[in-house]
Amino acid sequence: MNNKIRDVLKSKKSIAIAAVALLVIVPFMMEHNIILRQSKYFYLLLSFICIYTIVTSGLDILFGYTGQVSFGHAGFFCIGAYASVLMSHPEWGFGKWFGITLPPILTIFLAALIAALFGILLSIPANKLVFHFLALLTIAFNYLVLLAVSNFAELTNGYIGITRVPEINIFGFSFSTISSKYKYYYLVLFFTILFLIVKQHIVNSRIGRGFISIRDNLMAANGCGVNIRYYKTMSFAISAFYVGFAGALYAHMIGFISPDTFVQNTSVIFITMLLFGGSGNLLGPILGATIITTIQESLQPLADYRMLIYGIVILIIILFQPKGIVGLGKNISESMKRRGGEGNA
């Protein structure tokens, strides 16, 4: 009996399915007051976690698998958000110039594609650079995007930002966002799972092996005939696609965007999430996004002390666990295995 449970637990697929089922059922039951009570805030928190999971997974493709650091992914987040809004908003962008608007469900994909294009552009200088210079280049990229967005007021309304971003609806079914994030959460969850599955397929494919070879040993990869420039560009593009998509989802969820959201600190938070969770695997980004978002939100009542405690928590955890939360999990499971082995013997 015990063994059976262990076998079930061991198969990762079943755990994933159980987790997804939980994420679907619990909010449903809450909405209908079966367990706990309706909580708009809870849905919002879950949606944020999902969006940040997409961002962090995208960053993971670039950093965790290809080994290229980025301190400017808020730039892609910004491009995704603004591109989608400008294409779908009746008063700005397309609506202002041509009088036509595209449905948001289409524009989030187009926005992600635009972000991917910018990723390819950024990769032209970035392909050649090592760690520190890459960090600086991405920081500069982030600032440039931010400056562009805040200075072209006719296009983006500058620092004031754009309000009344249209809601996403598919064939008339509206994912109403202003009253409650309940339905929107399911949409975001769907995309998150989709993106995670796609990520898993990418990193386990030929492309993913190319990425990993670049991360592990550039010389050897080059010697084995991996086209380094091509794979690095690819990695930037995929990563930017993920983050741009998440940015678009964010914009349509909040209904308001302004440059303040996309400052360089946001990029730092993204990379913190990734490193905190552990990079180069499926679970790390999910854990990182979940834990950091939860810490930040639960520290909200502390007001001014919030960021101080947040910094201290991160520092302490890095000091004791310099491999991220996933590393901690591995340590525990290893020590349990050891103990279990002794017990059997």
Partner: peptide, 29 residues
């Protein structure tokens, strides 16, 4: 401490980021 634990470079960088968050907010308080 981090170097002694053989942490990867990026985690050392992250620790300095955390420290800078702490300093900024400590000064604010």
């Amino acid at each position: 401490v981090l170097v002694a634990k053989k942490a990867r470079n990026i985690y050392v960088v992250l620790s300095t980021i955390a420290l800078s968050i702490i300093m900024e907010n400590a000064a604010m308080l």
